[in-house]
Design a protein around this nucleic acid. Structure first.
Lengths: 249, 249
DNA sequence: ACTTCCATTTTGTCGGACAATCCGACCAAA
DNA sequence: TTTGGTCGGATTGTCCGACAAAATGGAAGT
């Protein structure tokens, strides 16, 4: 069954440069925060043109492996932030024509357990951050839909952080992100949505405060169920493709 | 609480080019499979230099939004393959110093439900593909560890496809990918590992064939538990950081 | 219809160039 | 000692032009 020869892949120079640097980063020869050599220096070391190095750097940048501190020139090694990774995943999901129903199903599976874990493991500061976000939503009943969505999404992100498992956090992040565009519509059309969300968050927080995993799970289930009901009330088709903010711009 | 000024962000030319093209893709103005204009043409339209366009293209390429067909020059619009996305996620997880235990916890949460869904939704061809992969592992008791790992990982990937939910598929894919390096060691050190894996796969397949979601879930739970036991037997520390293949090269 | 061959296009890489701006150091004033 | 100003060098972003290798498209031949 196995062929004599595998298709040989000739790598272009910028791909090699990219991979070599990536290996150094993943192999921890370069630590997050370290400054990369300058482009000219890299060009010298690899014995290629600076343009070639730049192309490699743009690829690495796009993977979140190197970033530049805001208002700085030099590139530094970074560990991809959850947000950056989530961007990539949600782009993919959009192009794969994910429906809201699929996102919902995945959230229904992940978030309750994630909430249960968070109940056990959350730190005091994480709880405080969650409370602050929830308050921002609950205190202002007339918040513009966009901002209400931001707070809702942020609540999920913080919960992800609090669950103490980066793998789960990063798996869950893209899902809430995909809710953003449609959630905004839903909140606009369903008057009671804000209160329902705020209410669920309050109960969830109470459970998290008591480190009550069972109740946290329960309330998250109800919370997620509510989303679906909200969508149905708003007349948003559940099998409609989710979009990104970028695409609707 | 809010500051008067937000940090202003000036976008460089290549970032703008990158974003503009990305928007067209995500907004479905460009469909997967479509050929992108040539670099010179893009440079003309954006009124920038070709080098600038190239940097943008490298970024898009790295995001999996455009790829080049093997042995072809022209870039085509693509939807990021699950594998490409998973690469990004697993890179991130490695740099976030994920432990095997966290990966295991996440898998324990996702995979059983994923198996249950697959039992309900798998197509005949998907089942056949799964069976083929399982056979490849079961038939050759003396397979090199590397290949046994490939088959094991592939089995999970196929199961992801079969679950009928791209969101879950893409969430689960990076996890199994992270098993690869250590799994290889485990299979080498624990003689009965191959049989345990093959056995679990066989039972799982039987359940999938009968569309028995409950049994599928059960066997998957046992399967995942087995992994942990295997690691313990092999003396691999559960809180050791997972690595990538690239990093260990 | 199927190959074969050639001219054209396109990409990958190179060299060099220049303005903008970031960095660090040095110095002056409060 | 801290704050603010100035200055030169280093680095990046962008441009221009060039060329070999490879892919593409089409014409020509069978």
């Amino acid at each position: 069954m196995r062929e004599l020869f595998a298709p040989l892949r000739t790598e272009t120079a910028y791909q090699q440069v990219c991979e070599l640097i990536e290996e150094k980063i993943l192999g921890r020869a370069l630590h997050p925060g370290d400054a990369l050599p300058t482009e000219t220096e890299l060009a010298r070391q690899f014995a290629v043109n600076r343009s070639t190095v730049r192309e490699a750097l743009r690829a690495l940048e796009s993977r979140g492996l190197v970033t530049r501190a805001p208002g700085s020139k030099r590139l530094r090694v970074a560990r991809p932030a959850a947000a950056a990774v989530a961007d990539g995943v949600s782009r993919a999901l959009v192009l794969h024509q994910i429906t809201f129903l699929q996102v919902w199903e995945a959230m229904m599976l992940l978030e309750p357990e994630l909430a249960a874990l968070a109940a056990r493991r959350r730190s005091a500061t994480q709880l405080a951050a969650l409370e602050q976000t929830a308050l921002a939503l609950a205190d202002e009943p007339a918040l513009p839909a966009e901002e209400a969505v931001e707070h809702t999404v942020r609540f999920f992100s913080l919960l992800g952080e609090a669950c103490g498992n980066h793998a789960l956090e990063i798996a869950a992040e893209p899902l809430t992100r995909l809710l953003r565009p449609t959630l905004s519509r839903m909140i606009d059309e369903v008057p009671q949505a804000r209160q329902r969300i705020a209410g669920a968050q309050r109960r969830l927080l109470a459970a998290l405060g008591r480190r009550d995993a069972v109740q946290a799970r329960e309330w998250m289930i109800k919370h997620i169920r509510d989303f679906r009901r909200g969508y149905e009330l708003a007349g948003i088709a559940l099998d409609a493709r989710v979009e990104t903010a970028a695409a609707s711009r």
